[in-house]
Nucleic acid binder design. Structure first.
Lengths: 367, 367
DNA sequence: GCAGCATTTGCACGCGCTTGCAACAGCGTC
DNA sequence: GACGCTGTTGCAAGCGCGTGCAAATGCTGC
C-alpha cells in the first residue's frame, strides 16, 4: 500500500536526496523547490552558524551587532520566517490561546472575541478559535483540540467543561479561563460579573419610575449568570415587598423575546416593568410589545436588558441596560495569562468579579 | 547574563537529567513533572516501539489490531494526545487555517466567521483568528503571522494585502482565499458576489413600487464590493432613464446610516427610494428617517439593504435586502482548500461568483 | 520442511528550532 | 607575559513526531 503523502511533503524530500539517493528522482520532477526557507539556509548565506540565526530572533540572546546585521540581511533576502511550530516544540510554549465559544454570531459574543483577539495579539499571543455550536460534549472535544495544539491556555466563553476535562487540561499545563461561567471549580481562572447586585439595583430604578408590577423575561438556557440575574432581581424585589412574574422560554435570542412578550403582555395583570435577561431578548420583547401589542415604551412599560450590545443604542430601542465590561474582561484574562507564565506556584486558582454599569437610555421613565 | 527560562521549560529538563547529570539537581526540586505525555511514554507502557504508537494515530498506517488495542489503552490511561505542533513539523502541514478579519464584532463578519470555523472543523482543520482592527499595514503583519505558524492557508475577510505579500504567501506554500475582496490578483482563490447584477435588479423592484427619485447611501470605505453595488445600481437606473443621488459618508456602520439619512432627507427633492450599501447602514438610515424625520416606511420611502444580517429581519426594520450566501461562501472556501491539497498543479488560480438572493420584506411597497 | 509471500514491527533519521556548554577572542591588570 | 574577565560563537543534543527501509513474523502451498 503506497503511504499517504501530501504534495508539500514531496517537495520537502528534495533535500533528503542527499542521504538516500534512489528515491525522489521522479519526485524532483514534480516539485522543484521546498516551500519554506529554514534557519540553516539563512545561516549559510550569512556565513554564520545556525545558532547565530536562532539567537538573532530570540529576544535577549547574546549576539554581536555585526552578526545580527548579517543574519537579518540574509533573512530578509531569503524571506525567512521563524517556524513557530518548531519553536513551540522546543520552548514548550506555543503562544497559542484557544477561544472556545458557541453562538459566535451574536453581538455580545463577537464583541468579546474581538476584544480578546486584540488583547492577545498585543501580548504577543495568537487566538485559535473553536466553534462549539454542534453537539453538547463539544466543549470537551474543543479542549482536546487545544491540548493537541499545545495551546498555552484556553478561554471558555460558552458551555461548561466536565470536571474531568478541566483536570486533564490543568495536568497538561494548560491554563484555563472561564468567562461568565459562574462555577466553583478549582484551578481555572474565573471572571464573573456582579449579576445579582446589578439586577438588584434595577429594582430601585423601576420603582423610582413608578412601576409596581415587575416581570423578568429569561431564556431556558439556565446559565449561572442568567439565573443570577433572575434571582438577584426577584430577591431585591421581595425585599421591597414586591412579587415578580418570571417567565422563561427558549434559547437566549431575539425570537424568545417576542414569545416572552406574548406571554407576559397577555396576562390579566399586565406588568409595567420588564427586566430581560439579555439585550437580545429585550429587543425581541420591545418589538413585539410595540408592533404587536401597541404598548408604548416607556410610558406604559419600562424595559431593561443586559449586555449593552450595539443594537441597544440604536434609536429603535434606546434600551437601558447593564454594560458588559468587555474590554476589562479581555484585559484581565490576558493579564492573568501573562502573570501565570511568570510565577506558577500561587495564583493558580483565582477568581474575580467585575461590575456591570447601568447605561441609562430612554426605555425606562425618569433616569 | 542568565538566559531566559520559562517554568514549563524547567519542568521539561527533568528528563534530560538522564543524559547530563550535573544539571537540574536544584531544578528537580522546583518542578516535579513534565507537563505533556509523549508517544515514547505510551510506547513504553504498551510494550511496543514508538513508531507503533505513531502509526496507531496515523490514519491508513499498517498496525495490527492487537498492537493498536494495546496502544490505545495505554494512551487512554496516560492521557496522551498527539502533538500537532510536531506532527505539523513532520508533515509540513499544520492543519491551521488563518482567518484575517477586521471589525469582527459586526453582524455580517461574525456570522461569516461562525460559518467558516464550523466548516473548517468539519474538514479536520482549525481556525486561527487574526484581528486587523489596528494599523493599516496590519493585513501584511497578519499574513506574516500566518506564515510563522505555517498555516496551510489564509482566508482574508477584510482589507487587502499588498501584491508583494500575496506573493510571499504563495511562494511559501500558503493557499490564499479572498472573500468579497474583488481583485484581479493571480494566485489567490477569490470568492465574490454578483453585486452589480443584484443591485441592478433592485432598480426594477423600486420602479414597480412606484418610486422615481432613487438614492444610494454608501460609506466612504470604497471596498470593491461596495462600489460594485453602487455602480451597478446607478448604471441600471440610467438604463431606465433615471438619475441616482449618491451620497457617501464615514465607515460602513449604523451611525453612518443616520448621517446619510440626514443628508438625503433634507434635500429639496427628497428621494422616495434608497438603496443602502449595507444592512447596518440601512438600519441607521431607517431609524433616522422614522424617528428624526417622521418619514413612514415604506409608504413615503422605500429602503433596501445588503447582507441580510439578523437585525434586518427584526420587526423594527423588516428590511428588504440581499442575502449574503454565508454558508455557501464558507463551503466553497473550505472545499477549495481540500481540493488544492489533493492536486496542486492546476486549480491554483481560480475565482467564483455567487448570487445574492433578494429577501423580500416590508421596507419596499408591493413585493 | 521450506520457499514464497504479505503483513507487521523496530530502527534510525530528520523536520526546524532552542540552548547549555565549552571554546575562543578581546582586553585591562598586576 | 600570564591571568582573569566579559561577551560571542559553534557544537551538539534534543523537543515529539512521521516514515523508508530492512528485519521479523505469520501463513500458504508444494
Amino acid at each position: 500500500m503506497p503511504p499517504f503523502m501530501g504534495h508539500r511533503r514531496l517537495a520537502h524530500i528534495c533535500k533528503i536526496v542527499q542521504f538516500s539517493v534512489h528515491r525522489s528522482q521522479h519526485i524532483r520532477a514534480i516539485v522543484s523547490q521546498k516551500p519554506f526557507v529554514s534557519a540553516q539556509e539563512v545561516a549559510e548565506r550569512a556565513g554564520v552558524s545556525r545558532s547565530a540565526v536562532s539567537r538573532t530572533f530570540t529576544p535577549g540572546a547574546s549576539v554581536s551587532p555585526e552578526t545580527r546585521r548579517k543574519v537579518v540581511e540574509a533573512a530578509e533576502a531569503l524571506g525567512y520566517h521563524v517556524n513557530h511550530l518548531a519553536r513551540g516544540l522546543m520552548r514548550n510554549e506555543s503562544g497559542i490561546v484557544c477561544l472556545i465559544v458557541s453562538e459566535m454570531g451574536t453581538p455580545y459574543r463577537s464583541t468579546l472575541i474581538r476584544a480578546l483577539t486584540q488583547q492577545l495579539q498585543n501580548a504577543g499571543k495568537i487566538a485559535m478559535l473553536v466553534n462549539t455550536d454542534r453537539s453538547d460534549g463539544s466543549v470537551g472535544l474543543a479542549l482536546r483540540q487545544a491540548i493537541r495544539y499545545r495551546a498555552d491556555a484556553s478561554i471558555i466563553l460558552s458551555g461548561m467543561p466536565d470536571k474531568s476535562i478541566t483536570q486533564l487540561c490543568l495536568k497538561n499545563g494548560q491554563r484555563l479561563v472561564l468567562i461568565n461561567r459562574d462555577d466553583d471549580q478549582e484551578g481555572p481562572f474565573r471572571i464573573n460579573l456582579n449579576d445579582a447586585v446589578a439586577a438588584g439595583r434595577l429594582v430601585t430604578a423601576f420603582l423610582r419610575a413608578g412601576c409596581r408590577r415587575l416581570a423578568f423575561a429569561n431564556s431556558e438556557a439556565g446559565t449561572p449568570s442568567l439565573m443570577a440575574r433572575e434571582h438577584g432581581f426577584v430577591a431585591a424585589a421581595k425585599a421591597m415587598g414586591l412579587e415578580v412574574v418570571v417567565e422563561r422560554y427558549g434559547p437566549t435570542a431575539y425570537e424568545s423575546g417576542r414569545v416572552l412578550a406574548q406571554r407576559l403582555l397577555t396576562l390579566s395583570e399586565r406588568p409595567d416593568a420588564v427586566f430581560c435577561a439579555t439585550d437580545l431578548i429585550a429587543c425581541g420583547f420591545m418589538d413585539a410589545a410595540r408592533h404587536q401589542f401597541s404598548v408604548s415604551i416607556p410610558d406604559q412599560l419600562c424595559v431593561a436588558g443586559f449586555d449593552d450590545i450595539e443594537q441597544a443604542a440604536w434609536s429603535s430601542y434606546e434600551l437601558t441596560t447593564f454594560a458588559q465590561p468587555v474590554e476589562a474582561i479581555a484585559r484581565e484574562a490576558v493579564r492573568w495569562l501573562g502573570r501565570v507564565d511568570a510565577q506558577d506556584p500561587s495564583a493558580r486558582d483565582h477568581s474575580i468579579r467585575l461590575d456591570a454599569d447601568l447605561v441609562w437610555r430612554s426605555s425606562i421613565r425618569g433616569g
